[in-house]
Amino acid sequence: MTGKDGLSPSLVETVAGFTAGIVSTLCLHPLDLIKIRLQVDRLSSSRVGGSVSVVRRIFQNEGGLPAFYRGLAPNIIGNSTSWALYFLCYGNIKTAMRTWSDDRTLTSVDYFLASGSAGMLTSILTNPVWVIKTRMLSTGSRSPGAYASFTTGAREILRAEGIPGFYRGLLPALFGVSHGALQFMAYEQLKLYRSRMPLANTSNCASETHGASGSFQSGIREIGNMDLFVISSLSKLFAGCVTYPYQVLRSRLQTYDAHLVYSGVRDAISQIWASEGMTGFYKGLGPNLLRVLPSTWVTFLVYENTRACLPQLLSSLR
Rank of each mutant, 00 (worst) to 15 (best):
Ile76Glu: 01
Leu113Pro: 00
Pro9Glu: 03
Arg291Tyr: 05
Ala146Gly: 08
Tyr246Gln: 12
Gly240Ile: 03
Arg252Gln: 12
Arg252Cys: 11
Leu65Trp: 14
Phe300Glu: 07
Ile124Phe: 05
Ile77Pro: 00
Ala186Tyr: 04
Val23Thr: 07
Leu88Gly: 01
Cys27Asp: 02
Glu62Met: 09
Lys236Trp: 07
Ile77Cys: 01
Leu106Asp: 12
Leu43Cys: 12
Asp32Ala: 12
Cys241Asn: 02
Leu253Gln: 06
Ala258Asn: 02
Ala148Asp: 12
Ser195Ile: 00
Val54Asp: 07
Arg98Glu: 15
Val48Ala: 15
Ile124Val: 09
Arg56Asn: 15
Gly71Trp: 15
Thr279Ser: 10
Met226Asn: 06
Ser235Cys: 12
Phe229Ile: 03
Tyr86Trp: 07
Gly162Arg: 04
Thr134Val: 15
Gly140Thr: 08
Leu106Met: 14
Asn75Arg: 08
Gly240Tyr: 07
Gly165Ile: 02
Gln60Asn: 13
Tyr86Leu: 06
Pro164Asp: 07
Thr152Ser: 14
Leu85Asp: 01
Gly64Thr: 11
Gly49Pro: 02
Arg56Gln: 15
Arg266Trp: 01
Asp32Cys: 08
Leu38Ala: 13
Ser51Ala: 11
Gly284Leu: 02
Ser203Gly: 07
Tyr303His: 11
Thr139Glu: 14
Thr306Ile: 04
Asn201Ala: 14
Thr279Cys: 03
Gly21Pro: 02
Met226Ser: 09
Cys27Tyr: 06
Ser178Phe: 06
Arg307Asn: 10
Tyr111Met: 08
Leu171Tyr: 03
Gly277Lys: 02
Ser275Ala: 06
Phe216Arg: 10
Gly153Tyr: 05
Gly50Val: 05
Leu72Arg: 00
Val55Phe: 08
Gly240Glu: 09
Cys89Ile: 01
Glu13Thr: 05
Asp110Lys: 08
Leu88Thr: 13
Lys133Cys: 14
Val55His: 05
Leu260Gly: 04
Pro128Thr: 02
Trp273Lys: 03
Ala308Thr: 01
Ile163Asn: 00
Ser295Thr: 01
Ala200Pro: 08
Gly165Gln: 03
Glu208Ser: 06
Cys241Gln: 07
Thr25Leu: 01
Ala181Val: 10
Pro311His: 02
